[in-house]
Nucleic acid binder design. Structure first.
Lengths: 269, 269
DNA sequence: CGTCTTTGTATTATATTATGATACTAGGTA
DNA sequence: TACCTAGTATCATAATATAATACAAAGACG
C-alpha cells in the first residue's frame, strides 16, 4: 500500500479501506486503539479515517462504548453487487429448485484469485447460520466447487494452480497433498463433477458441477453440501447428482462470453 | 461532503466512497466518464480514485471496455457484516423453519433511518431473484415490517415518523396518505402484527411481526410475503400468522439490551 | 480507408489538505 | 480521591492530492 508512490494512487483512500478491512468475522467491533493496532496506522490517522467513515455512514459507532462496527451500508454494497453479477440472476431459480428438491444447501461459487467465493446460497432444511451467508472464501483446491471449476481449465493453467495455489487445513480431513489434489481434479475432469468428503466441513459431502462458458471453461460452479450420515455415496449418486448436473448445465448456455472469461488477478481481500 | 471542513474529516476518503456509491442497482458497470458525471468529480480526481479502488481490489475493471464494476470485495463486506450482527444469527434458524413450513419467503428486516433494510432472506418455493437478495431498502412507512417496528415505539416517536418519514410510490397500490398510515400502525399496535396488500409488490400480501427488545421496543421484524391468489386473508390468518408471531417471539427474549436500542441516525446510503 | 471525435492514460507545478505530535477530557479502577 | 487508560481536539508543517494539460488509443463516420 505505502509502496505505491504513483500519482494515480490516493493513499488516504487506501488507508480508509485498510480501516474497513480491519473488521472481519472474528473482529466485528473495534475500538479506536484496536483499529490503530490492526491497521498499523497511528492514533491520529485512525481517528481521522474512522471518523470520516462514521460520518459517511460506513461505520456505526456505539455511543456508549465508542466502539466501531460495520454499518448497514456494508449490506447495501452486497445488494448492488448482486445486481451487477448476471450469473447470480441466472442461477437463482435453479438453486432454489435444487434446494427445495434436495432439502440441502445449494450454492453458487465463483473463482476469486486462488479461492472460491460463495456468491449465492439457498439453505436447506438442516442448514445453520454459517452455511447460509454469502461472501465466504475458501481455498479453491480444497473445495468441490474449486476443483469442479479447475477441471475445465487448460492443462497448463490447471497444473500451475495445483502447484502454487493456497492449500489450508480447514478440517482434520482436509487434503494438503498436492499430487493427490491433482489426481482428484483429473478425475473430476473425466466424470464432470467433483465430490469431496469433509474437506471444508466434517461429516459433510460436497458435490459440485462446473458452470461452463461458451468456450467450455468455467469460472463458477453449482455446489451442494450433504450430511454424510443421511446421504451415503450411493444416494447422492442417484438422487442428487443428476439434478446438480442439470442445474449447472441449464445455467451454462446463458452465460455470455467475455464477462467471466478474463477475471482480473489482483490483490485479494 | 465538501462542507465538512473539519480536520477530523479526510476528504479524499469521502470522495472515494462517493465513487463506490456511484454504482447502484441500475448502474452496475460504469466508465470513467460516467463515474465522473455521477460523482460530480472532475476527470482527474475520478481517475485517481477509481484507479486506487481498482488497485486495492474494491473495483474490477474490464480489460477490454475499461469499464469498472463492483468486485467480489463487495460481497466479502457482507460476510463480515453478517457475523457482526448477532440478531441475524439468532433469527436464521427461525427464518429457515418459517420458509420451509410456509413455502414463502421469510425475511428479517431492520430499521435503518426511515427505511427498513432486509438483512436476511430465505426464499420460498416461488421466490424470484429480487426477493432473495439482502440489502434492499424500502421506506418503513410503506412496508409491513416498518409498520410492525414502528408500532412498538412510544407515541411521540411514532407520530413524528408518520408525519415526516419518507413515503414513496413503489407500486400502484402504495398508500401515500399519512393519516391512513398512522391509523394502520395504530391497528398494528393493537393486534401485534402488520399486514399490507401490494404495498411493495403487487399481488402480494406482506405479514410482519416485530422483534422486541427487553424494553418492548423493536428495531427489527420478521416478515413474510405471500401471493394473494393462493393465500387469501383467512388462510394467512390461520396457517401463517401463528408461526410468524411465534418466530418473532422466539427471537425476542434473546435480544441483548443496548445493542439495538440506540441506532445512530446519520447519513443514509 | 483515413479523418475526426471521444475516452482513457500519463505528467507536472502548485497549493490544498493530510499529518502526527501534543495537549485536553472523560470514564473506569484501585 | 487519585490514577490510568482511551477517546477527543488543536495546530504548525510538509507531504500529497489537485486539476490543467498533453498524449494515446479506440470508435464513429463520411
Amino acid at each position: 500500500m505505502a509502496e505505491k508512490q504513483n500519482t494515480l494512487y490516493v493513499g488516504a483512500l487506501a488507508k480508509g479501506l485498510l480501516v474497513l478491512r480491519a473488521f472481519d468475522k472474528t473482529a466485528t467491533e473495534l475500538s479506536l486503539t484496536e483499529l490503530a493496532a490492526r491497521t498499523g496506522l497511528d492514533k491520529s490517522a485512525t481517528q481521522r479515517l474512522a471518523n470520516t467513515l462514521f460520518v459517511e455512514g460506513m461505520l456505526d459507532k456505539d455511543p456508549k462504548t465508542k466502539r466501531f462496527r460495520p454499518s448497514h451500508a456494508w449490506l447495501r454494497m452486497a445488494y448492488t453487487y448482486f445486481w451487477s453479477n448476471p450469473l447470480i440472476q441466472l442461477a437463482m431459480p435453479r438453486l432454489i429448485e435444487l434446494s427445495q428438491h434436495l432439502g440441502a444447501t445449494a450454492n453458487l461459487a465463483e473463482i476469486s484469485g486462488d479461492h472460491i467465493l460463495y456468491v449465492s446460497r439457498i439453505p436447506g432444511k438442516t442448514s445453520h447460520f454459517a452455511s447460509t451467508i454469502v461472501g465466504r472464501r475458501l481455498p479453491a483446491l480444497t473445495t468441490a466447487a474449486g476443483r469442479a471449476i479447475l477441471s475445465t481449465w487448460p492443462a497448463t493453467d490447471r497444473a500451475q494452480a495445483v502447484a502454487t495455489w493456497t492449500v489450508e487445513q480447514i478440517t482434520s480431513q482436509t487434503t494438503l497433498d498436492r499430487d493427490e489434489i491433482g489426481r482428484a481434479i483429473d478425475q473430476v475432469a473425466d466424470q464432470g463433477y467433483a465430490e469431496t468428503q469433509g474437506q471444508a466441513m466434517l461429516g459433510h459431502t460436497g458435490v459440485s458441477a462446473p458452470v461452463v462458458g461458451p468456450d467450455n471453461v468455467a469460472f463458477a460452479a453449482v455446489q451442494c453440501s450433504f450430511p454424510s450420515r443421511t446421504w451415503p455415496a450411493a444416494r447422492i449418486q442417484e438422487e442428487a447428482l443428476p439434478h446438480i448436473l442439470e442445474a449447472a448445465n441449464a445455467i451454462a448456455p446463458q452465460v455470455r462470453p467475455g464477462r467471466y472469461t478474463d477475471e482480473v488477478g489482483r490483490l485479494q481481500v
